[in-house]
Design a protein around this nucleic acid. Structure first.
Lengths: 230, 230
DNA sequence: CGAGCGATTGAAAAGACTCAACCACCGTGG
DNA sequence: CCACGGTGGTTGAGTCTTTTCAATCGCTCG
């Protein structure tokens, strides 16, 4: 169980950090990072930041998952990304100079560290390894989103659902996927009712198992085949 | 008319450059850029680079438009971006370390300069202004694509078409939009036939005018209203 | 002048959405 | 301990958008 206090997590022992952009060649800067970060406890559904506001810093996920989403004209959420432990969130708007184009909200109770804009930009300037990591990350995401757009435009909802489940299987590595139907629908980009019907189909085909809210992937190969083409 | 020889364009006088990332604080580096670039003439439909290959350098558009697109599982193109004079193309894969996730093809006869990977990365390392510009650009595009994804997921084809026309009106600033119906459909993310029918609707509503292949925007306000919400 | 590509139209089918109702689970307060 | 309220999940029916397929048209280029 997650400690509900505003526990201070040490960067030196943080397992999440070791998988993050703050990992390689970072030992000499660790104390600097340690001094300039602050830790907070976020309750489920608590927002980290909101679309339209200006960035104050970046968020480093120690424990707990976070959804990153944009809102369409009618206010409906489109989930762009689901971030897991070790990911750093919210640095895009740090460089673009404009406000957040997306919002981020904790999907479950979470421990999240915060690094202020000034401190973060300072680190970027003085640490080429971190900088290159950030640039690599921005670039990778840009490529991912080109694929995302293409899938949205060309795949059926069923295909997109299968693709989403494969992604989520990785995000929840090992654990069962644990999202509301609405969040899942907003990730796939469909109506909740449609999503539920298609989930049932997949269950009947023996591809997944449904434990009320949690989803278990039974046959990943078949899922990939469904996600693939027609 | 465009000079069809492999004319060498001087960076010093290149009007396109002045609107590009190679503009501000770049005077001292101009000769360096000049020495390390090469100019080529691209014929209409000639590819600059292709999805799946590894990057050899970046492309700086002097004259002519370029479509950037990904291919879905059935080979159908999804146009992600239409680049105009002054834009630099293909730097994403330069930082991510992987292959191109998209292809780029000249939409019309074009003059395009090339800067090799080594030279470009060298400039990035030694020129903080350029580097910051690149990071800003990566970040901006990332935000744009979050919006793109959301539009794809939540807007009707009609709304997306209106939004696309507004974007294209800017790309073709002043000139009439000049794309095949298929390219336009692949940008909007729909079937060619659907696109044609919706164009006809817009024409009948007095929002656009159709001159065979070229499109003229008559009522931009109305177009924005259509693109907006329901 | 013919070939061929791009544009257009029509009709039918499919996929997805909306609306409305109902169910099930869970935590709370009496 | 149990009834209550609420959120999240499920189902059905009808509708509408969008796609698909097939056929035709028209223009440009060799």
């Amino acid at each position: 169980m997650l400690d509900k206090s505003h526990k201070h997590v040490s960067c030196a022992t943080c397992q999440a950090r070791k998988k993050s952009l703050f990992s390689a060649n970072f030992d000499e800067n660790l104390s600097h990072l340690e001094e300039h970060k602050s830790c907070s406890y976020f309750k489920k559904n608590q927002p980290l930041f909101i679309e339209g506001s200006f960035p104050r810093g970046v968020y480093c996920l120690n424990q707990g998952k976070v959804k990153v989403f944009a809102r369409g004209d009618e206010g409906k959420e489109q989930i762009i990304h689901i971030a897991k432990e070790g990911e750093i969130i919210g640095f895009r708007a740090m460089f673009s100079g404009d406000m957040y184009k997306v919002s981020a909200t904790a999907l479950e109770d979470a421990n999240i560290c915060f690094i202020s804009k000034d401190d973060f930009l300072d680190m970027i300037d003085t640490n080429p390894t971190l900088r290159n990591g950030i640039m690599r990350e921005l670039s990778k995401e840009l490529g991912d989103r080109a694929v995302f757009i293409t899938n949205m435009a060309q795949k059926s909802v069923r295909e997109r659902l299968a693709a989403a489940l494969i992604i989520l299987d990785d995000v929840y590595s090992g654990e069962q996927i644990n999202l509301t139907r609405e969040d899942l629908a907003n990730f796939v980009g469909t109506a909740t009712e449609t999503l539920i019907r298609l989930l049932k189909d997949l269950k009947e085909e023996g591809v997944i198992d449904i434990h009320t809210r949690k989803l278990e992937i039974i046959d990943k190969d078949k899922l990939m085949k469904i996600a693939g083409g027609r």
